[in-house]
Computed example of a mutant assay.
Amino acid sequence: MVTETDSSSPDDIDWRSETSSAEMSQRDRLAEFYEQSIYEPAVVAWSDVRTRLGIVILSVYLLMALVEVLGLWRNPAPNQAPRLLAPFVNMQYPLGTTQSGVDLFALIVDSTPFILLMVLAGGVWATSVAIVVGTISGYKGGTVDTVITSISDFFMAIPGLPLIIILAIALSPENPILLGVILTINYWAGLGRSIRSQVLSIREASYVEASRTMGTSTHRIILKDVLPNIMPYVMVNFVLAARYTIFASVGLYFIGVLPYTGQNWGVTLNNAYNQGGLFTLEALHWLLVPIVAIVGLAFGLILVSQGMDRIFNPRVRTRLTGKSESVEEESDNENTSAWV
Rank of each mutant, 00 (worst) to 15 (best):
G54K: 13
G322A: 10
N237W: 07
T213H: 01
Q306A: 09
T5W: 04
S8H: 05
A45F: 13
G123F: 08
P87H: 08
V199K: 01
Q263E: 12
E23N: 09
T184Y: 04
S17F: 10
N270Y: 07
I185G: 03
S128Q: 05
R220W: 03
S21I: 09
R196M: 07
A130P: 00
A168N: 01
T245D: 12
P159N: 15
G142T: 10
I55S: 14
L163N: 10
E68Q: 13
M24I: 06
L281E: 15
T97C: 05
D110I: 00
L281Q: 15
L167S: 01
S197E: 05
L303W: 09
F254G: 01
D48H: 13
G251F: 03
P94E: 05
T245Y: 08
L278W: 07
I108D: 01
N333I: 14
F312Y: 15
R212F: 01
S305D: 05
Y244G: 09
G256S: 04
V267E: 10
V56H: 03
S17G: 04
D309W: 06
K224Y: 04
V60I: 15
E209S: 04
A241P: 00
I311K: 07
V292F: 03
L116E: 09
G71R: 14
T19N: 12
W286V: 14
G307S: 07
V250N: 01
W188Y: 10
I169N: 14
D28N: 14
Q306S: 07
M235I: 06
A157T: 11
S7A: 13
G134N: 09
A168L: 03
S25H: 14
G307Y: 12
S59Y: 03
M1C: 07
G266T: 02
R319D: 04
R16N: 04
G266R: 01
W265H: 02
L223T: 02
T143S: 12
W15F: 10
G251K: 05
M118A: 06
S7K: 09
I108T: 05
L53Q: 07
I255A: 02
Q36G: 00
S100T: 12
R212A: 01
A22G: 09
L163G: 05
R203Q: 00
